[in-house]
Design a protein around this nucleic acid. Structure first.
Length: 593
DNA sequence: GCCGTTTTCGGCCCGACTGTTTTCAGTCG
């Protein structure tokens, strides 16, 4: 059983235990264990083999034994025992908003209901309202929840949620009663997908602010509204939460609602260790005296930590690091910023499956003030995407020569996104690859190869002297499909050895390589290229999503190739080719045709 | 079930809103 299946299974065990009425702490242990495994990146098989699973914080003896059994044999006695506690289909009922474990349990025990369909029927037959603790309104809430569940599927992509968030943010910014307003939650932390949108506003008049919030365009439904908290559902099916506090409370509220939950739990524990109290309204010392918290920095400073960038707040060791930096008298290192981007590689045009012409794309790159622009259409095997024949590649070079004259201030680089063929070779003969400025090597076929075979295939491509960039390394599509099975640790080592730039594909459906590999990537000294994989002019804007993920990886501008000066960049693109050309470095080199 | 410079027991973050109730449990974040 692979890692993502185990993560899912542990979370389900937590939910089953919850419905069955187990200790809430045991429930939380499964949920936190599942999240801990999800946020940990490394080779799980190796960890299991070395019997080191408990080295992941949040996973102790009990969970590690379940994980070991599942990873090695696919079955676990403990897991089977938990699963037998309640019928599996009840987990579906938990997805209905407003229905938690207690209500699901009551509905099942009293009425024998097992599925969403049965629950819906029971609501129509007005059976639910007869149960203790339920009434007519609960039936309506459930029916509405079922309807929404069928219509919308949980989390959303940054490209969608970002637009919705901006709409609400602007509506609040226009309200004169608002003192400060900021985006919080997972969007501020640059998570790759978003469950709902969190906004924090400060004011002396919460009523006016609430009214401005509820007057925002595109609200399907108001789910709750109170003195300090309101929640609506947008037309796109995304929940939007607004928390309203006083100006003095803004910093602690922003910190609190930015999260993550795990980060906040650790931070509050740190306050408790001092006999202090921290919540969204402030920070109090042991004598119950409020401490000055004018901004987020001061909250961390009181707790003897340097200020931690929002993207890093996942409780993955950042608090320990902030403590060390604080005692060393240093600051958190600067993370890469959008304004530092000088250009990019891996953009498509109408030469293959892009929607804009090469000229239009180049024009847009020049208008953005970029120093360089790399075009990389699909290679010839990608027939589905209009991949270029060798002849077309040569014709494209003629157009690029022309554009270079028209846009002298922009350096235009001619590349290709070459399919990695099933045997690991690239899609053109060496002499054709040699004519190009760079090659993005990507897998677009045979996703279901066995792990070792897929790893070997990609390794061969990475060791090809013409490979400059490893494109969208795992091929995942967020909310659609997992990446192909591969040995990521091994392949990152290969990329480091060969000097291959690892792509951070900034398309909001991909955001691949996953940010959780950030630490490994930094340890190996790998250079990351943030590439929009743009198929249109608007697609170039996706770089901003990529920068957010790079910040989440903890990267500085030095580690992101497309923030570099032109000369350094050009030099970097040829490094691999020259390295590989040296006889002592010729390892597993391919002979394309 | 996890954790630990109060370490093998006894804690485990904390507050808002809703709906069903007449003071609170359940859900959510």
């Amino acid at each position: 059983m692979n890692k993502s299946e185990i993560i899912q299974l542990l979370a389900e065990c937590g939910q089953i235990l919850e419905i069955s009425g187990a200790s809430p702490f045991r429930v939380r242990a499964f949920q936190q264990g599942s999240r801990a495994l999800e946020n940990w990146q490394g080779d799980l098989d190796q960890l299991v083999e070395e019997d080191q699973v408990t080295s992941i914080r949040g996973i102790g003896k009990g969970l590690s034994s379940i994980i070991r059994d599942l990873a090695t044999s696919g079955v676990s006695e403990e897991e089977a025992e938990i699963r037998a506690l309640v019928p599996e289909s009840l987990l579906e009922l938990l997805r209905i908003p407003g229905l938690g474990p207690k209500k699901v349990r009551a509905i099942h025990q009293e009425l024998g209901i097992l599925t969403i369909e049965e629950l819906e029927a029971a609501c129509f037959q007005q059976q639910i309202r007869e149960l203790a603790g339920f009434a007519e309104r609960t039936e309506n809430v459930i029916l509405k929840g079922i309807k929404n569940l069928r219509r919308f599927a949980g989390r959303s992509l940054l490209s969608v949620s970002g637009l919705v968030a901006t709409r609400f943010l602007q509506s609040l910014q226009r309200c004169p009663a608002v003192d400060q307003v900021e985006l919080a939650g997972s969007l501020r932390r640059s998570r790759e997908t978003v469950g709902d949108i969190d906004l924090v506003a400060s004011t002396e008049n919460s009523l006016l602010v609430r009214q401005a919030f509820l007057a925002t365009e595109g609200i399907r439904e108001v789910e709750s509204e109170g003195e300090t908290k309101s929640r609506v559902q947008s037309e796109e099916g995304i929940g939007v939460d607004l928390r309203v506090v006083t100006p003095e409370q803004f910093a602690t509220a922003l910190q609190h609602f930015t999260g993550s939950r795990e980060h906040n739990t650790s931070l509050r524990q740190r306050a408790r260790d001092r006999g202090w109290k921290l919540n969204e309204y402030g920070l109090w010392d042991a004598a119950d005296q409020p401490l000055e918290t004018a901004d987020e920095e001061s909250i961390y400073e009181h707790l003897e930590l340097v200020s931690i960038p929002p993207e890093q707040r996942e409780d993955l060791g950042e608090i320990e690091r902030a403590e060390q930096l604080f005692s060393d008298g240093q600051e958190w290192p600067d993370l890469v910023e959008f304004e530092q981007i000088q250009g990019t590689l891996h953009c498509h045009s109408t030469w293959s499956d892009g929607k804009a012409t090469l000229r239009e794309m180049v024009q847009s790159a020049a208008e953005r003030g970029w120093k360089y622009y790399g075009t990389a259409d699909h290679s010839r095997t990608a027939a589905y995407a209009g991949g270029l024949t060798i002849d077309q590649l040569h014709q494209q070079r003629l157009e690029i020569d022309q554009l270079r004259q028209e846009f002298p201030e922009l350096t235009i680089l001619h590349g290709i996104e070459s399919d990695i063929l099933t045997d690991g070779s690239l899609d053109y003969p060496d002499e054709v690859l040699a004519e190009l400025d760079y090659v993005v090597a990507s897998v677009h076929s045979n996703f279901s190869l066995a792990r070792q075979q897929q790893t070997d295939r990609i390794e061969r491509a990475l060791r090809n002297r013409y490979t400059t960039v490893w494109g969208h390394p795992t091929g995942r599509l967020l909310l659609q499909r997992d990446g192909y099975e591969l040995d990521m640790v091994h392949l990152l080592k290969v990329a480091a050895e060969e000097g291959v730039i690892v792509e951070l594909n900034a398309n909001p459906r991909r955001l691949d390589v996953d940010w959780r590999w950030g630490r490994t990537i930094q340890e190996l000294g790998i250079d990351i290229g943030i590439h929009p994989d743009a198929h249109s002019i608007a697609g170039l804007d996706d770089i901003e999503h990529g920068v957010g993920i790079a910040r989440k990886m903890g990267l500085s501008c030095q580690q992101v190739t497309n923030t570099w000066d032109l000369d350094l960049y050009i030099q970097r693109l040829s490094v691999h080719r020259e390295q590989a050309a040296a006889p002592e470095n010729r390892v597993g080199e391919s002979t394309n045709e």
